[in-house]
Write a protein that binds this DNA or RNA. Structure first.
Lengths: 207, 207
DNA sequence: AGGAATATTTACCAATCGGTACATTATGGT
DNA sequence: ACCATAATGTACCGATTGGTAAATATTCCT
């Protein structure tokens, strides 16, 4: 995804002096660490290497900037959730989700946790729109996993008595809990133990 | 716990016109719903029915007020975590934790979720102390459960190959994930399904 | 070369933030 | 009745918040 895909590059006028994609990456780091409301405009500008008018011209306002960083977060190379759905068995699907979460949430090169969990969990009224956007993102992940588990049940991968919706909610709860654990200082090995505990009891076929 | 236990009632001077305990309850509601930073002093004052000088005279400042509300949160009648440790088997312990979390996090009479999870998960530097206080609270719960599971292992309740620290981290992750689910709108029945999923696979003896 | 278009810089805006000075009011002790 | 003590209401403080007006700088097009 090039910067010109975010905002069409104009053919005339003074050219932008910064890379929008890199600036978004820096903004993501700030929002990830401090949350939507905890990240101030000076925080963001300093990290992005630009000043406020440039930020507003390029991204709209703080809220739109945040939503764009979330898009980036979900599309970046190390995103693990949606690709995990492609695996052949429900066991492999949840294994890749849980292990991906362990790696990403506790990656020392990134802020701890998950910005979709901690970006706006409890906040003032002025952040309601952002909070609900993140709720929708979490919910979308749960629905996608539920659909995948329904398929697994239809294929005989999961037992007939299993409840895909409940299992999806359970897995999402564990993933979100792992994000909280990571912000509390849990490292990758500790999170992998959580993943292992879940996998050891997974009702689907192995392999 | 009476109000006079919080701050010794003076024998002289104009008497306090509000109930400190009830004011703390109201402050808790605000912090619970909006988080530490998202709750403004006007928000708190309005809910508590007092104005700023009274708040500062009675509770110190915003940070100390928050820490006192957290104490109240952990000690209030519907608190479920530490009492659950007293049950006879590890199965009963985690069952009461998980079911208590389902009830409390999705109680329509209270804000959704858990203030110890969402009070200051990602925030600005000025809230670092509060954030780390909540991390310590969460960690203390995990250590207490770990100790209880070690006892269960020693008693033969949990199998010899089980890892109490990993199990405790897993349960705490689920509890924290349930709090996130509750802030996303999950109801009590949905959270109980998560609890059931965990309990169905619990390695300890039943009953 | 000159103009249209866009980006950058500086300086500013009103609103809100957490926190407090000060005058007033209400109590108990003497 | 009077004083010491403490709580209240009002009105304020400097700092920071998200956001912008206006001037300047850099490009392409003619």
């Amino acid at each position: 995804m090039s910067a010109s895909a975010v905002t069409p590059a104009p053919t005339v006028g003074r050219p932008r002096a910064f890379d929008m994609e890199k600036a978004l990456q820096k903004a993501l780091e700030v929002f990830w660490r401090k949350g939507y409301e905890g990240a101030s405009l000076p925080d963001l500008c300093e990290a992005m290497g630009i000043n406020k008018p440039s930020l507003y011209a390029a991204f709209g306002n703080k809220e739109q900037l945040f939503l764009k960083t979330i898009e980036l977060y979900e599309n970046r190379p190390c995103a693990f959730f949606y690709p995990a759905l492609e695996h052949a068995t429900s066991y492999e699907v949840v294994k890749h989700m849980l292990c991906g979460a362990a790696s990403t949430n506790a990656d020392p090169d990134n802020p701890p946790g998950c910005v979709i969990v901690q970006g706006a969990l409890a906040c003032s009224e002025s952040a309601t729109f952002v909070k609900e956007a993140l709720i929708a993102k979490r919910r979308a992940g749960e629905v996608a996993l539920c659909t995948r588990l329904e398929q697994a049940k239809a294929e005989g991968d999961l037992p007939d008595h299993s409840d895909p919706a409940a299992l999806a909610r359970y897995i999402l709860a564990v993933l979100q809990g792992m994000a909280v654990q990571a912000t509390s200082g849990a490292n990758c090995a500790e999170l992998k133990q959580v993943a292992e505990t879940v996998l050891a009891a997974w009702p689907g076929k192995r392999g």
